[in-house]
Simulated assay, not measured.
Amino acid sequence: MVRAARTAKSDKGERTGGTGKGAAAGKVAAAGRGAGTARPVRPRGAAGTAGRATPRPAAPSRGSGSGSGSRGGRGSGSGDGETRPGRWLPKRRTLLLVLALLVPLCGFGLWALYGSSWLRAENVSVGGTRVLSENDVTRAAAVPLGDPLISIDKGAVRERVRRALPRVRDVTVERSWPHDITLTVTERRPELVMESAGKYVEVDVDGVRFATVGKPPKGVPVLVLQGGSRPAREHFSDTRLRREAARVAAALPEPVRRATRVVRVRSYDDITLELTGKRTVGWGSSERAEAKATALTALMKAAEDATHFDVSAPSAPAASDS
Rank of each mutant, 00 (worst) to 15 (best):
R120F: 01
S61A: 15
A8T: 07
V41I: 08
T19P: 07
R92D: 05
L95I: 05
G86F: 11
G45A: 04
A38Q: 10
A35G: 09
A38N: 03
R6S: 08
P43R: 15
G17L: 13
T37C: 06
G73E: 14
R15G: 04
S64H: 14
A5T: 07
P57C: 01
G107I: 02
V103H: 01
A38F: 01
A4C: 02
K12W: 09
L99V: 12
A30G: 07
K91Y: 14
A100R: 00
T7S: 14
L99Q: 02
A50G: 09
G69K: 06
P40D: 11
G72K: 02
A29K: 11
G107L: 06
T94E: 12
L119D: 00
R120K: 11
R3G: 08
A38E: 06
G18I: 05
R62W: 07
R33M: 12
G81L: 04
V98H: 04
A59D: 08
S116A: 02
R71P: 07
R42K: 11
G65N: 03
G20E: 13
R15Q: 12
L110Q: 07
L110E: 04
G63E: 01
A38K: 07
A112N: 05
A38M: 08
G48L: 02
R33N: 10
A35L: 14
G81M: 02
L99D: 02
S66M: 08
E122H: 09
V98N: 00
G75A: 03
T49M: 13
P90H: 00
P60Y: 04
A50S: 10
R39W: 07
L110N: 03
A5N: 09
L89Y: 12
E82S: 15
G67R: 11
E14A: 13
R84P: 08
P85G: 13
E14F: 11
T83I: 09
R92T: 10
C106T: 13
A23F: 11
G51R: 14
G48C: 03
G32N: 12
R52V: 00
G20P: 07
G45H: 05
R39P: 03
G72M: 03
R39T: 04
G18H: 12
Y114R: 10
G79L: 06
V28F: 00
T7I: 12
G20Y: 14
R33I: 05
T83R: 15
S10F: 13
S70M: 11
V98S: 04
A46Y: 12
A5S: 11
R71I: 04
L96A: 05
K21M: 07
T7N: 13
T7L: 15
G107M: 03
P104I: 01
G48M: 01
G81A: 01
K12Q: 10
S76I: 10
G26A: 15
A23R: 15
A23E: 11
G36E: 08
A35F: 14
A4V: 06
M1R: 15
A47P: 06
T16W: 14
R33T: 05
P104H: 01
G72W: 04
R6N: 07
S70F: 10
S117H: 07
